[in-house]
């Protein structure tokens, strides 16, 4: 066993030149942590949504009334 192990030796070239080629790679956009929302912002958005819903509902009822008339 000891003999077979010694058969494998790392190869480290001590002579010659080393070439490094800098290849430009494409970049990915980075992962995005999502910012948490403040309470004020959440409340504002909720209020705006509620307001839009009421306006929408009123419009719908008005349309329905027009159709029935």
């Amino acid at each position: 066993m000891a003999e077979t192990k010694s058969m494998f030796r790392e190869v480290l070239p001590k002579q010659g030149q080393l070439y490094v080629e800098d290849i430009t790679t494409m970049v990915l956009c980075k992962p995005k942590l999502l910012p948490l929302k403040s309470l004020t912002l959440e409340k504002l958005e909720k209020m705006q949504q509620a307001a839009q819903d009421t306006i929408h509902q009123q419009e719908m009822t008005e349309k329905e009334q027009k159709i029935t008339h």
Binding site: C29, K32, L33, P35, L36, K37, S38
Partner: peptide, 22 residues
């Protein structure tokens, strides 16, 4: 910006959104 994404205004994105940060 190579590490941290930026917003439209060129700022690094923040961890928290308030009405004014928008």
């Amino acid at each position: 910006p190579a590490v941290r994404p930026v917003t439209q205004a060129g700022r690094p994105i923040t961890g928290f959104l308030r009405p004014s940060t928008q």
